[in-house]
Design a protein around this nucleic acid. Structure first.
Lengths: 223, 223
DNA sequence: AAAAAACTTGAACGCTTGTTCAAGTGCTAT
DNA sequence: ATAGCACTTGAACAAGCGTTCAAGTTTTTT
């Protein structure tokens, strides 16, 4: 590789360089532990430029999400359209699962290096994020579309069953995005989160089967 | 309830009060954003006591894990013994899944309020945690036991299949522990992560079915 | 070519961070 | 009683934080 990991191209504007450099740092160290000076150094600009272009550190943080989220939204919408046009029921369930997972894992193939997924995982597990409202604004809409699609696949399920199924899928996806080597360590290298295709195939297989064959006897009357 | 959430009892020693107060704060704000002074204030002691008793802020952080992890370890071991003694194969798979999930969700019933689960989720998604080695020391051993038990349930599976199955289970569990209201928001209140029994029943049902019925055609020859 | 706007810079600001220190308190064992 | 030890305290420390500012440079508009 010609360039180190998340180092931005030299030709971009300073604003873009800040934006791109911060993704890797926010993902690696978290919002609090990522200092403005580290970002500025990585981008090769003075610290003051962050506040000039983004108002504040949190403004930059939001800008990172606002730049990356739409692509995921679009890919999920396309994935769900594909699922709805699938007449075969078995394949349809699998396509819904893939509509959730593939757009996220696809990131790791690009120059992203999984950093954005790690930021997402952090933001999801951070109670302070409620105040920021990033998930509510940028990801809840597509989550509701996913829930509708799931409900169409299983019309007899209760709302709670549909939602817990969605969260189970989300969690399985999340743990791959968060991983930083523990999966490879535990598996002796046979499973590796940095191979997103392999991870996706395994997880989709388990989740699809889980949805299609779940035992509802304990849950369907849970009100 | 007589006492507010994670407020420690007055009778405990100062060391215990620091330890107990910090769990909630680390869970709520994360390691970096939790300041020594906030912890000291919550425990009702001067800041200097943290360094006296635990050496450093990270020392306190480690102490939190070292205090809470053994209980989870023990409960998982018992759960796996129970699973191994179950002759019925279907029920055995379910018991292995439960051996992973129940000890974790059980925490939310106690005075813990889910804070420790949130710390775990953060630590798992924090690349800096590799340096601390908390997971490697405290949770990898029982993870390997879980993997062995899973492998016994499905002797024909490859190592990768066993490991991805385990990670899928772990992720589904993690997302409930991380949750801070999004599940209730998305589900209109019909699914709620603060009701651990209900969450456990749904997730165990999906995961058990996913393990038993997964399609191996795409994965069994993945080397 | 002149004026305006946008961008860049290095230094400085006030504040908070984790940690240290010397002094003081209270129990425990001799 | 008294020496010893563990514990507690409030004040102080240097370092680092996000942000601001006035001055400079570059680009765009008139």
């Amino acid at each position: 590789m010609a360039q180190p990991k998340t180092q931005p191209k030299q030709g971009d504007t300073a604003k873009d360089r800040i934006l791109d450099s911060s993704v890797g740092l926010f993902g690696q160290y978290g919002y609090e532990a990522t200092t403005a000076r580290k970002i500025a150094e990585a981008a090769g600009v003075p610290v003051a430029l962050i506040n000039y272009h983004f108002g504040s550190k949190e403004g930059l943080y939001r800008a990172v999400f606002e730049k990356r989220a739409p692509a995921i939204y679009d890919q999920r919408v396309v994935g769900l359209q594909l699922a709805r046009s699938e007449p075969d029921w078995d394949r349809r369930v699998e396509l819904v699962v893939k509509a959730l997972i593939v757009p996220m894992f696809g990131l790791r193939n690009g120059s992203d290096d999984g950093a954005f997924g790690r930021i997402l995982a952090r933001e999801l597990s951070d109670p302070s994020s409620e105040g920021r409202g990033i998930f509510r604004e940028l990801f809840d809409p597509v989550a509701e579309m996913m829930l509708d699609a799931l409900g169409e696949c299983f019309p007899e399920w209760t709302q709670a069953e549909v939602n817990w199924a969605y969260q189970t899928m989300l969690g399985a996806m999340m743990i791959v995005m968060m991983d930083i080597g523990r999966i490879a360590r535990l598996s002796g290298g046979t499973a590796d989160s940095s191979d997103p295709e392999a991870a996706a195939v395994h997880i989709v297989a388990i989740l699809t089967a889980g949805l299609k064959h779940r035992d509802r006897s304990q849950t369907k009357h849970m009100q």
